[in-house]
Design a protein around this nucleic acid. Structure first.
Lengths: 292, 292
DNA sequence: CGGATTATCTGACTATGGTCAGGTAACATA
DNA sequence: TATGTTACCTGACCATAGTCAGATAATCCG
């Protein structure tokens, strides 16, 4: 409209580069060059494999070694050789190091709240915009990993799923979706599964599986974060959970859903699911099955 | 919800830093360090004041001088002393320099379309998210400058204003808003004004003023880009245009609007505007005036 | 006119991040 | 056990970006 897309992207880049330039200066603000500060951030109090740090930052081994010596001279970290492989070494934060990391985090926290304060009443919108952009940029680095269904992130995913259904399905009421029973094992191995898709630290999708009688399992709670829609992630989630079900020895899958959730139903139909007889009550009004 | 706001901001920062790290490497891809490339980008074929370049990049004069000498050795620019002030100097792109800049722009264009391709069907949403973030980060650097009402950006602002009114006011029809007459002088000095607010290259707001009889002027076409709302910009636009009207010698202002545009009306009431007798026809249904 | 200021240039210096070629000790394997 | 590989360290070197102190010429101003 006003600017062509490339110009808008460049404007965005300029704005962000300027803003995060200020953030980098803050790293210097604690009297330590950026490189050493980045290494310090990756050292945990329980100890971190030096090789892991090198891999994560993509550093030359010589350079990393120098950063570690510098941090050691400051008494922020200690290194010891790995007892299981005495070529390797393990870095650990000292008390002073933990305090220093905490100071960095406090600094980052302050600067972040400053940025969000700029957004004023629109902070939520700005955060959603940031989620969207980060998810799109990280598009090819979404990891699907099993999770405990009672883990805080898993509960958050399920709550987001319920909210979404309540918002979109006219017949759905919050009371249809009690918070999951914390002691139920139905989504937990060996009889069940709960998968979360992670985009760098943010859970962006979930799906659950639970065993029914007779070599049949049920797919439940397929949900994708607003920022991650339109990129084929729900298809990936379904393919993954179906493969899990197959590996567990199931021969049939089923699920219930609601006609208002049109994209989900379109996805199911496009991947071999067909309508079956009703087996649950409202708000469900569509029931589908698939042979594995 | 899932992550606290600070974690979400950091995730965003990581994603963007990684992505624009790739972009910076591309600058190096043409065999020239980033600093010299940034300087080259600011040199225009018609000539650019060296002092301007220094101010824009915040460079030390010694460093800039070295970058300019390096670019001169590559025959990409030529410098001559400013005839009006022979201490100053002016840099100009050579033919080869223009070609080199074009090559950079093509490179940036390719990389940008790659990024946007990642967004797939959601490219528009991603661009809107980028506009919002850039506008929020640039919040304190919005320049309000007079513009020609027939300039492309001014026309785009007016079109956006019309679209907004048509979308929000039930009684408004596109035919109520013909494209502005390109040869009308009513918004052009000396008798009128057209102001645009710029956030780094993007027009984010406009407002117009035209003289009526009897020391009265009319405020028209107050519009703020979606990404810039909620930050007091419309108030600033009104204050600026009112000051202009006062400086032009007007003693009264008036405007017409529609009851559906509630925030605008609230702003007018909060800044001293009061209801007056109708003076135009639908879709206007609210008329206000203010003594200067 | 004379002194202060300004714009640019030059050379010396520094910090940071990074590469590269060995070196050493530990480990893996034929 | 001999050989090759791996993880880390060290020292030498380099590129980039940046600072700082003059030098020079032009301009401004009282």
């Amino acid at each position: 409209m006003f600017l062509d897309p490339v110009a808008r992207l460049r404007r965005f880049n300029r704005a962000v580069t300027r803003a995060s330039g200020a953030l980098e200066t803050s790293f210097m603000g604690r009297g330590r060059p950026l490189g050493a500060a980045r290494v310090l951030h990756l050292v945990r109090a329980e100890g971190t494999d030096v090789a892991d740090i090198r891999a994560q930052l993509g550093l030359d081994s010589g350079l990393l070694s120098r950063f570690l010596r510098a941090l050691e001279r400051e008494h922020l970290i200690e290194t010891k050789t790995d007892p299981t492989d005495r070529r390797r070494s393990i870095a650990r934060l000292t008390q002073a190091g933990q305090a220093e990391v905490a100071a960095y985090l406090a600094l980052i926290h302050d600067q972040s709240t400053d940025v969000l304060a700029k957004a004023g009443a629109r902070a939520d919108e700005v955060l959603a915009a940031m989620d969207l952009i980060a998810t799109v940029l990280n598009r090819h680095q979404v990891d699907i990993r099993p999770a405990d269904p009672d883990a805080p992130e898993a509960l958050a995913c399920q709550r987001a799923y319920f909210d979404e259904v309540v918002a979109r399905v006219p017949a759905a009421r919050p009371e249809h979706f009690p918070l999951p029973d914390p002691h139920s094992d139905s989504y937990r191995p060996p009889q069940g599964r709960f998968l979360i898709a992670w985009s760098d630290e943010l859970p962006v999708a979930c799906v659950a599986l639970r065993a029914l009688e007779d070599n049949t399992a049920e797919v439940k709670r397929l949900w994708v974060h607003a920022s991650a829609r339109g990129q084929g992630l729900s298809r990936r989630m379904m393919a993954t959970i179906e493969a899990e079900a197959r590996a567990m020895g199931h021969q049939r899958l089923r699920l219930d859903t609601n006609a208002a959730l049109t994209e989900a139903i379109a996805l199911y139909r496009a991947t071999g699911w067909t309508d079956i007889a009703p087996y649950t009550t409202p708000p469900a009004d569509v029931w589908m099955g698939k042979a594995l």
